[in-house]
Amino acid sequence: MNLTLKIWRQKNATSKGKFVTYKVNDISPNSSFLEMMDILNESIVLKGEDPVAFDHDCREGICGACSMYINGRPHGPDKAITTCQLHMRRFKDGETIVIEPWRARPFPVLKDLIVDRTSFDKIIQAGGYISINTGGIPDANAIPIPKTDADLSMDAASCIGCGACVAACKNASAMLFVSAKVSQFALLPQGKIEAAERVHNMVAEMDRLGFGNCTNTGACEAECPKEISISNIARMNREFLCSKIGAPKVKEESGGF
């Protein structure tokens, strides 16, 4: 396959970026998108120029490092995968592909396609945990948990923290990310103890960091490589409301909101 690539190049956080056009030839349709980028970079290095910097690590869709905005969509055209799982067979010979970094104010570009996502860590630090120390824990089977709750919690916990939801959202909202963590714990008895405080603190931190609000467009859910459901946002809103009014919580039904 022969392809034309329009890639966002930006030297560092303070400099101005621009699109640069590259050609790559003889790409196997079986190669992954990032392997195609490797081939491009190899040729750039041999020319003595600066290769395209991008985040990537596990290359099997679980670490959440890769973060390319491909032809106007986070992680490219396929559903339910990350950039590293995208394969070139998904593109046509001769196609032009536009590659950009995530674009959101709380994710400043560091270089080329690399953005700073430490704001996500800060949100987790604000309350994305159950406050227990190591040791002195009762037996794991001491608290039975309905399978449906455990499964729903697992659905939410599948989030890989890549930030595609923010990149896809016109408001740069992090609500899908935050609600996934809030839901994972809110659905489990262990997590209910601090539920009110947790949702309050995480939402406050999210706001402080400059992420936008949710206007129910659903782009986050559509682009999430792990198909995290937008019903988590509804659950978070309810948790948030309850945390404010102190009302007893509505009984959870399996299957989400």
Partner: peptide
């Protein structure tokens, strides 16, 4: 025990 208490959603 530790992981369950942390909220790790193991299969049930």
């Amino acid at each position: 025990d530790q992981c369950v208490a942390q909220g790790v959603p193991f299969a049930r």
